[in-house]
Design a protein around this nucleic acid. Structure first.
Lengths: 138, 138
DNA sequence: GTAACTGCAAAATATTTGCATCCTT
DNA sequence: AAGGATGCAAATATTTTGCAGTTAC
């Protein structure tokens, strides 16, 4: 079930504007992670590049979306499902990148494992990115 | 023990030039991952930005170094220890990024766990990046 | 000597900042 | 009405490409 877009914005104390509404909608509808470019070209209205940057930044700050680490110097964003539902941030799932179709997605059902580090390290967050061939391409 | 720099280059069928020698030396001496900027400013000679880009690219292709995925749109490179010793590429260790001092390093002793994905996915590589407080800062 | 490498110039791309105007509340 | 958001212009940063001169082998 897709949550009400305006509710999500209001819950995060963000004013409801066209760009925010439409960009958030894009994330809610998309199965996969989105690059800046996907967002610029994916909205019906053409929003300024700068607006997209600023919108993504605000969404990040509010915990509505998160960045997925990549090796290729690209930046991909994906919804924080947990956050959107409850306002808590638990980004504890695995990310998958298909080397065939290039799509990056969150595997919500796959938990990141607990990894023990040598004495002296304090773990704040563990990120796992698996690359390979996705279901669709396999 | 630091391997002979020229040997590493020759083993990878690269001609031995000042920039390659010095950039490789920087990696061999460094405990941590290096950003493009660290390399530009870390060499005694000032090599052209383009030369640094191209050197890093060649080292990547040969498997001498690898990129560490980051969330912050920066690019960090680190030595492939295994490769430099044997010519095989097994980048199966965990990466750690300290949120206090910003240093990123390879935890050679910590293996990435085997993660099972739902049927249909083919895993090629698993990357783990843990962020938190490092030994030195803790 | 030849193929490969480097440095310079410049293009292409990506990101950030300032400011005037417009929109949400 | 007031504060915040947007769009435009422009500054800054990052990466890539072409080419001529230089160097390794």
């Amino acid at each position: 079930m897709i949550p009400n877009i305006e509710d999500v914005l209001k819950r995060n104390r963000l004013s409801v504007t066209d760009s925010r509404r439409e960009i958030l909608e894009l994330f809610l509808k998309s199965e996969n992670a989105l690059a800046h470019h996907d967002i610029e070209s994916g909205t019906s209205e053409k929003y300024d590049r700068v607006t997209v940057y600023r919108t993504l930044q605000v969404f990040m700050e509010k915990g509505i979306i998160h960045i997925i680490p990549t090796s290729d110097n690209s930046v991909k964003y994906a919804l924080c499902k947990d956050n959107c539902e409850e306002g808590h941030h638990h980004d504890d799932h695995v990310h998958f990148r298909c080397i065939s179709c290039g799509v990056t997605s969150c595997l919500e059902d796959v938990q990141v494992p607990l990894i023990r580090l040598p004495r002296g390290f304090k773990i704040q967050q563990t990120e796992v990115i698996i690359s390979g061939i996705c279901k669709a391409c396999g």
